[in-house]
Amino acid sequence: MEPILWFGWFRADIIAEYGVMFWRGLQMTILVTVICIVQGTALGLAIGLARLADARHSPARQICRYLLRWPSTVYVSFFRGTPLFVQILLIHFAVLPLFINPADGLLISGETARSLKQNYGAFISGILALTLNSGAYISEIFRAGIQSIDRGQIEASRSLGLSFARTMYHVVLPQAFRRMLPPLGNNAIALLKDSSLISAIGLAELAYTARTVAGAYSRYWEPYLSISLMYWTLTLGLAWAVKRLEARYGRGDTR
């Protein structure tokens, strides 16, 4: 391909040459982000509730403390207290091979394990690491959101005969969710950007594509500026979506 120069210095032909890879990378980045937002939110909710779990009578009281609160606290502390990059490498090169391994995987072994690792290894590890990491952060958002709801709301609901679960579902979470939308939105944007770290284990997303192009041509402006614009567009889109959600669910809030 003939070099095509934009503004005299931007080698557009390089980007065009790897166009299909950028396109696939963009799709992969979006896919990973969406999956991790959904899973991370579900996990964050579960962990957030586990961290608040309490009961009045034993043995439920002890169960809440030792089987729910303590493990979830340790989990959140670990995933917030260690770098995501380290978590990704740990999961991909240490944890996952323990479970999925052609020779002696605890979960899957043999030819299935080999093809799974080759086709989806980095994908699985990346999703796992990012989900676990964002779940830890989101659980804190849920915890703070739930705790911000006035006790009187829970008492009113319970006094009407609604169970704890129904109170959470109908009364607490809808109110907490509205307050959690801004931090959840920030978290989603952080997640989108953090997904670039998965490139280290060879997942062909946007950052990986840029690295490939930079490696092949030793040119950095073109690939990294291009993916910067793509990430930027995506984060703007996410921010817009969060704003829409806030407008939609913002009614009736007295704060």
Binding site: D150, G152, E155, A156, S157, G161, Q175, R251, T254
Partner: peptide, 15 residues
């Protein structure tokens, strides 16, 4: 559910 309760601060569900 057999016992109605009315609170000082109303505690209506704002949403």
């Amino acid at each position: 559910s057999e016992i109605g309760m009315v609170f000082q601060r109303f505690n209506l569900f704002p949403h």
